[in-house]
Measured scan of single mutants.
Amino acid sequence: LAALHAEGPLAGLPVTRSDARVLIFNEWEERKKSEPWLRLDMSDKAIFRRYPHLR
């Protein structure tokens, strides 16, 4: 499970980098069924690119 911001401008976004990794992994797991070539990237760089508020 990932903790998400409940309200405000960040509502629905992950609270920590660990939470972001959970979301990225879950999405990758779903997408790899139809796109088996996808690589999993959970590096800090990938997290910041996707969720800049975690910098």
Rank of each mutant, 00 (worst) to 15 (best):
D19W: 03
Y51T: 00
L4A: 05
G12C: 09
A2Y: 07
L38D: 05
G12N: 07
M42S: 05
F48H: 10
W37L: 12
Y51A: 00
E7W: 10
L40M: 04
P52W: 02
S18D: 14
R21K: 10
D41P: 01
L54N: 00
P14M: 01
L23T: 04
E7C: 13
E30F: 11
H53D: 01
A20T: 00
A46T: 10
Y51N: 00
H53F: 02
W28R: 01
A3Q: 15
R17V: 15
G12R: 06
V15M: 13
L40T: 02
R55N: 11
A20W: 01
D44F: 07
R39N: 12
L10D: 04
A46N: 10
W37S: 13
L13F: 07
V15W: 05
R21I: 09
P9Q: 07
L40Q: 02
I47C: 02
R55G: 10
L13G: 02
L10F: 13
M42Y: 08
K45F: 10
R55E: 11
I47S: 00
E30P: 02
D41C: 07
F25S: 04
P9T: 08
L40F: 05
A46L: 08
R17F: 13
D44Y: 09
F48T: 11
R49D: 15
R55L: 14
R21S: 06
R21A: 09
K32L: 09
I47E: 00
A2G: 08
H53I: 01
F25P: 00
P9D: 09
K33H: 10
L40C: 07
G12E: 04
P52S: 03
D41S: 04
H5T: 04
H53N: 03
N26E: 11
G12Q: 05
S34W: 09
P9L: 10
G8C: 06
G12V: 03
T16F: 04
S18L: 14
A3I: 14
R50F: 06
R17A: 14
F25Y: 15
R17I: 15
T16V: 01
G8I: 04
L4G: 04
L1W: 08
E35F: 09
K45P: 09
V15S: 03
L23R: 03
D19E: 06
N26S: 11
M42P: 02
L54R: 00
A6K: 15
F25I: 15
L23E: 03
S34K: 11
E29N: 15
R49G: 13
A20E: 01
E27D: 12
R39H: 12
V15N: 03
L38V: 11
R49C: 14
R31M: 09
E29A: 14
N26Q: 14
G12Y: 05
L1C: 14
A46S: 09
H5Y: 11
H53R: 09
D44H: 07
A20C: 02
A2M: 07
R31L: 10
L54H: 00
T16G: 08
R21C: 13
R17M: 15
L4R: 08
A11W: 08
V22Q: 12
A20I: 01
L38H: 09
V22L: 14
A6Y: 10
E30D: 10
R31G: 06
V22N: 08
P36Q: 07
H5E: 04
P36S: 07
R39E: 15
L10P: 04
M42F: 09
A20D: 00
P14L: 01
F25M: 10
P9G: 06
R49M: 14
P36I: 06
E7G: 11
Y51F: 15
P9S: 11
E7L: 08
L13R: 03
R21F: 05
E29D: 09
L40H: 01
I47N: 00
F25K: 10
D19G: 06
R31D: 04
A20Q: 00
P36W: 08
P36L: 04
A46F: 12
L13K: 07
P52R: 02
S43N: 03
N26C: 15
G8T: 03
F25G: 02
R31Y: 04
P14I: 01
L23D: 07
A46H: 11
Y51R: 00
E27Y: 05
K45H: 13
H53W: 02
E30N: 10
V15E: 05
D44Q: 06
L23H: 03
A6L: 13
S43C: 07
G12S: 06
S34A: 12
E35W: 08
A2E: 07
G8W: 05
R17C: 13
D44R: 07
V15Q: 08
A6V: 13
D41I: 06
L13D: 02
M42E: 06
D19I: 03
L1F: 13
K33M: 10
E7Y: 11
L10V: 04
L10N: 09
D19L: 02
K32R: 14
A11L: 10
E7A: 12
R31E: 04
A11E: 09
N26K: 13
E35P: 05
P52M: 02
R50S: 08
E27W: 06
L13V: 03
R50A: 09
E29R: 15
N26G: 08
L10C: 10
G12F: 04
E27R: 03
R31K: 11
P36Y: 06
K32S: 13
